[in-house]
Design a protein around this nucleic acid. Sequence first.
DNA 1: TCAAAAATGAGGTACGTGCCTCATGACTTA
DNA 2: TAAGTCATGAGGCACGTACCTCATTTTTGA
Lengths: 336, 336
Amino acid sequence: MHDVARAAGVSLATVDRVLNGRPGVRATTTEKVEEAIKSLGFSRDLNASLMARSRDLTVVFFIPDGSNEFMDSLAEAVSRRVGQALSDRMHLTTERIRALDTGALAAGLDALDPRTCDCAVIVTSEEPDILAAVDSATRRGIAVMTLVSDLPGSNRRHFIGVDNVAAGRTAASLLGRFLPQGGTVAVIAGSLHLRDHLERLEGFRQILSADFSGIELVGPLEGHDERGETETLVTKLLDEHPKLSGIYNLGAGNAGLVAALKNSGRAGRLRVIAHELTAPTREGLRSGAIDVVLDQNPDGEIREAVAAARSLALGAARHVATDPIEIGIFLRDNLR
Amino acid sequence: MHDVARAAGVSLATVDRVLNGRPGVRATTTEKVEEAIKSLGFSRDLNASLMARSRDLTVVFFIPDGSNEFMDSLAEAVSRRVGQALSDRMHLTTERIRALDTGALAAGLDALDPRTCDCAVIVTSEEPDILAAVDSATRRGIAVMTLVSDLPGSNRRHFIGVDNVAAGRTAASLLGRFLPQGGTVAVIAGSLHLRDHLERLEGFRQILSADFSGIELVGPLEGHDERGETETLVTKLLDEHPKLSGIYNLGAGNAGLVAALKNSGRAGRLRVIAHELTAPTREGLRSGAIDVVLDQNPDGEIREAVAAARSLALGAARHVATDPIEIGIFLRDNLR
DNA sequence: TCAAAAATGAGGTACGTGCCTCATGACTTA
DNA sequence: TAAGTCATGAGGCACGTACCTCATTTTTGA
């Protein structure tokens, strides 16, 4: 800051006013300071900054509540990181929001006070009221990031998630190699209104039609990410297609999928690919009912979200770079 | 530190002496202070500490030089992280050591000065002189970590790497599913004297014999991780086994593997699994000569190594916890 | 032209730690 | 018992920043 002050020909107090957006600085002076900052490549020392104000960086994670086990593992990943974050002067909080209750999420965002919250991380579908709440929070000075599913058109500062089209392509590519003789494969989605599910389906179809013409597609069927509904659906599916050779469940409800497979007595005789490493899919892998699980690595996502929150706290950088989240591919043999 | 001093009934200066191992403290006093530290759960603030001594944490990476492309990507991963590390007051340096030149690595370790280096990260095979050098560096107060391949029996403070037995198991599990009709599969290693290669082989055999009795094994053959030697080897192999249906190369030399497959005209007609995402394996995936690449994610390894170095700098903790490095599974369709 | 308002400078304290000096008191040894 | 050694305390400056007060300068508006 001394260097910046000298280069800009102003005092430390003025540099401080510019850096922290305090009033009482002429526009021309602000410009001089910002120029000096840029030409010197000065970047505020986040640790010293947090220490000086003797306050932690606060990040609030809004995570859907309900029966979706993946959301639980996201929440667990947050709590696993609390300790390490604390030693980096970061305070992580989780708020569970009733799934699909957009009003509750919007209210939660609106209730955030920029004096006690620096960054909000949300998992949401695309809804107009969420979009408005995100933009309002951004205006109040709270950096908002989207997790798992993006919110295009909003002022969210960053998105953390996997490439779902690539995930769908990977599933198709594996199933295709698993079934060199061709066959019939069913696709199950949670809902065709969910962005990530649609993207996976798109990728899956892409590769199947391009590279594996010997495979016939059934579906997509909708299981609404629920255990019971998915079980009924798969039971009926297996009944109607005695020669079915593969299933790709690109949504949740995997407990139902595994149950239906076992009850039919055909578990292990079909190649099955599902998403997200949770209790039911782990069990499915171990028992052989599921061959492959594609996972978006909740711990990695939270790690990157926390890292991104730190970058965002430095303010200036419009664009934040994070390590990409890789799609984990799990078989029984590399279960972690 | 004030709290610790009060709890131990000593002054700040004495707490400082204990924390930084400075002389002039009676054993009984040291004990009182350490007890207070433990009961208060006090942990030194690394950032404030680094700031106070106005010196960065210095980490030196010793990475083998030569024709092994994976080692290059490790070095690149280090340089990609330099910037971010700098803003966390860490200084990363890379030293390339002639591959297999254990004398050079030992000399490099011996040359480290604890005043200018806090932590060394080495990639090495198991050799007695390296072991001695590691222990000497540890005694001088330099934390040594092993990367990729561990050095059991040494005083290294931490190991960062993947579970190679699981990697081998995964390869077998995939190949088995790729070849539901059974067939003959060849295994190629770099050298049967390398610990990680042996572990992969062990896992591969484990699963093949347990779950896929229809598959017959050829090899392991040794390609010594070299392009030319591997090409010759694979060409001969394909010649002698016209009905070969799969290859697992658990070592390097993948450029040779791909070349041999292409020249034989059988690329794409065998299921091929290789290790490490490098230029030749990417090309193999894209062209269809290689089906799956198992990758140990150099960026993740470096990220965790840096994080572990920070924990080690706090001193006390005998055991450091890091996120496990996951084995990446790459097909043409999820290439990053 | 002058007073009010706005902009800026100067300098202090704090955050948690490292590292230094100097003073004081306790203990050892001849 | 005196001199010396060792253990400990007290306190200061530094690191890079936030945030505060107060004085001074510059600009603005009537």
